[in-house]
Amino acid sequence: MSRDISHEALYDTAATLRLVDAELGALAGRIAPAAPTHAPVAVSPTPAPRGVESVRAGGPVLAVLPNLLEQAMHEVSQMLLSLREGRENIRQATMERLSSTHAKLDEVKGATATAATDILDALDRSTALVDELDAVEAAGDTVRGPELRNQLRDELFTVMGHMQFQDITSQQILSAQSLLGDMEARLVQIAELFDLEVGQRRDDSAAPNIHVDPRRFDPNATLDDASSRQALADALVRRTAAG
């Protein structure tokens, strides 16, 4: 019985070796296509796979294979590391740009709310002045009337001045659009690494191309702290005039 087992084991081992050898031969052919040819196949009733002979002869394929595999693994590891670093950089840059876009849109929201309040307040004061003007004219007062009209004109002109928010918020929105357009272009570039037609599909789609002329907006446009900013401008103008 032990003899049957040993025969069976030998048979199985030989079959396994032939299978492994066939796989190694195919792999070696892909990795090292210029690998030297093997010695002629030994005489045998059925021709032995190439690798078997190289196993018997300790030929070059198996000898270099571990090194090749190790090298390939090293290269793949380096590529994976680069991909991870690149992905992290892209993620950080994207998050920064998204955060900046959010901040700009928040500023727009705040600016429009402030302008709306200021305008409503000025309109309230204007309405009060109209009421007072009616009362004054009804009383026949010819002095107070012109004063009130001037005050009313000033208030209405103030309302007009508050409308400057539209120009500033427009630039803030253009800046946000520019950031989004830039992000979209970068994402398309990355997607094209895997699918060359992504860019073409994007161009063919109904979605508008977001490209903003950078000359049209100031990325730092703000309604905040106008008096300090004007003071800086005045100081620099004086310095230039003096110099």
Partner: peptide
């Protein structure tokens, strides 16, 4: 203009602008 950083103001003055108002004015 809305532009109000130091470098921008200097650039404008060097370009030939005589005076400078920051928006909103």
């Amino acid at each position: 203009t809305a532009r109000s950083v130091r470098e921008d103001i200097i650039t404008a003055l060097e370009a030939g602008v005589n005076n400078y108002i920051v928006k909103p004015f």
